[in-house]
Amino acid sequence: MSEAKIRIRGLSKAFGPKKVLQNLDLDVPDGQSVVVIGGSGTGKSVLLKCILGLLQPDSGSIRVDGQEVVGAGRREMEEIRRRFGMLFQGGALFDSLPVWENVAFGLLATRRLDRSAAHAKAVETLGRVGLPAATADLFPAELSGGMQKRVGLARAIAGEPDIIFFDEPTTGLDPIMADVINDLIRDLTREIGATALSITHDMASVRKIADRVAMLYDGRIIWEGPVAEIDASGNDYVNQFINGHADGPISFGQEQAARRA
């Protein structure tokens, strides 16, 4: 079998004395959707930012299509990032730019399209996430939370990326809108044929968009498998998390103690 699209080995990252990631291994196979679950503050976002090259890990290796990301030069990193799309948790839309320029930002930045072609492409992409052409000329602040998520999604897919990252895609949405976004994520990722890596703690989202699930706890992946097997994982930590129990091996105090160790 060929190497995974994203191959992470021995990844560690600490902020001062706080060890967030410790020797983490993870494979994201080509064309699959992997969802990393884990409690708040367990380092899920740090993991994503390391892959995106926004944070420099202390040690370990991250290979995207066989190309090493850790220690890559800025130019090399820019080249790798062109294959990425990312949906940020809060949308991270540029509030000084109209919606269409947000969506087409990557296309304009890489000079792949001129402004009128980019506008047309933006309107088309907005259509794919279910937004009418009229939204193109609005500003992000004029949109509801759900619409902002859709625009963020449109921006993530506009460059037809190989790999899309989703950072808590359903946070802050009502259950119905969350489901709509989940459907969009699943359908669009398949349509583009992209590999997806998501982080979330929303189990409804996991069941909808994941092919494989990995559970992050104490800086490591403690369980990994197909989404169908998640209910029969036999892992106490996973069971506690997916059922949302306060009692179990995961507790706030223990997590703190584990970090200090």
């Binding site: 995106l52 926004l54 820019e78 991270a92 540029f94 930002f105 990557g106």
Partner: peptide, 12 residues
């Protein structure tokens, strides 16, 4: 609001 990170991911 992660807009600076978003710029980096959009080849800027």
């Amino acid at each position: 609001t992660e807009q600076i990170d978003a710029l980096s991911t959009l080849s800027t």
